[in-house]
């Protein structure tokens, strides 16, 4: 594995809710003890259902939401220890790309102004250099230099996502959180953006935390994958290992649920019943046990630790040794 650029240790985000003068509040555990690393030039995927905490994790790493406890380190900087005033300097090292580029671009600013603002805020280049840099950025993401003079509404969804990517790249970041960047795009356009991300990764050596719900996109783009459920890591490993040989029942269920674009494939699969339980009142022991077809009494008693298996892949399930979850695609 490449040397780690981002190190996340025991990250927790808890929200107090419903607390008032007359009422004892409760705690919503959005993230509970999450640890992982992202290597230099590595793309790490983050999957899980809505409510699993994947978006919260992406934002907590960037300190766009304040972690309750735990540590995030980027290079030699302790992100979690920085006073808010020093965060701005760090923002040039870490950036984010959003799902809906239209909602995240200022409709009254031309593309050139949007990109120029990022450069100005971080005091990158002189005014003249900036125009040059804006044109270069646009070309890098596959748009003509002339796009700088136009406004977001003049672009299609895919082109807007290219602008969102250019804005993230403007400040030369080392690390980018991509929060569902292709989920809102048409299939034919999604493929263009996936190819663009592959190009940028190769050319710039970027490290990415790629949040998604489409498992085929995650497998295609990511070196390693983290599976999150109710704010906890269920399993993590290389994409190849995790997809071929899932060791957690939840991972298997997620892989089974993804529709395969081949009408001749009929599979044996685990269908999960019900929905994600409330993070305010999570199940005792393993949080997945209420939907797990393999749950036994012991699962309610202990929180399963994230164990490292012989393949180097890590899983939080007390039965992972005895279950055979290899995917029997018929």
């Amino acid at each position: 594995m490449a040397e780690p650029l981002l190190v996340v240790e025991d990250l927790e985000v808890h929200y107090p809710i419903g607390k008032s003068l007359f009422k004892e509040g409760v705690t919503l555990r959005a993230l509970d003890g999450v640890s992982f690393t992202v290597g230099k030039g590595e793309v790490v995927g983050l999957v899980g259902e809505s409510g699993s905490g994947k978006t919260t994790l992406g934002r907590a790493v960037l300190r766009l939401v304040e972690p309750t406890s735990g540590r995030v380190q980027l290079g030699d900087k302790d992100v979690t220890a920085l006073p808010p005033a020093d965060l701005k300097a760090l923002r040039s090292k870490m950036q984010i790309i959003f799902q809906d580029p239209y909602a995240s671009l200022n409709p009254r600013m031309s593309v050139g102004q949007t990109l120029g603002e990022a450069l100005m805020l971080h005091k990158i280049g002189t005014r003249k250099d900036r125009d040059q840099r804006i044109g270069d950025l646009l070309e890098q993401v596959g748009l003509p230099r002339s796009a700088a003079a136009r406004f977001p509404h003049e672009f299609s969804g895919g082109q807007r996502q290219r602008i969102g990517i250019a804005r993230a790249l403007a400040v030369n970041p080392e690390f980018i959180v991509a929060d569902e960047p292709v989920s809102a795009l048409d299939v034919s356009i999604q493929a263009q953006i996936i190819n663009l991300l592959q190009d940028l990764r190769r050319e710039l050596g970027l490290s990415l935390l790629f949040i998604g719900h489409d498992l085929s996109v995650i497998e295609f783009l990511c070196d390693r994958v983290i599976v999150l459920y109710l704010g906890r890591v269920m399993e993590m490993g290389t994409a190849a290992e995790l997809y071929a040989n899932p060791r957690h029942p939840y991972t298997r269920a997620l892989l089974d649920a993804a529709p395969v674009p081949d009408p001749t494939v009929r599979r044996d699969r685990i269908t999960l019943k019900g929905d994600l339980p409330s993070p305010v009142n999570p199940p005792s022991g393993c949080v997945f046990r209420t939907r797990c077809p393999y749950a036994i009494d012991a699962c309610a008693e202990v929180v399963p630790p994230l164990e490292t298996l012989e393949s180097g892949h890590r899983v939080a399930c007390i039965r992972s040794h005895e279950l055979n979850l290899a995917n029997p695609i018929a």
């Binding site: 299939v187 034919s188 356009i189 999604q190 493929a191 263009q192 996936i194 190819n195 592959q198 190769r202 489409d214 085929s216 996109v217 497998e219 295609f220 783009l221 190849a240 997809y243 674009p261």
Partner: peptide
């Protein structure tokens, strides 16, 4: 355009690309 991983290509270290 669908992202389908060519496992043989990936194992041999090739970069995967989609025909968008």
């Amino acid at each position: 355009s669908l992202p389908v991983v060519d496992h043989a290509a990936r194992a041999s270290g090739q970069e995967l690309r989609l025909r968008a």
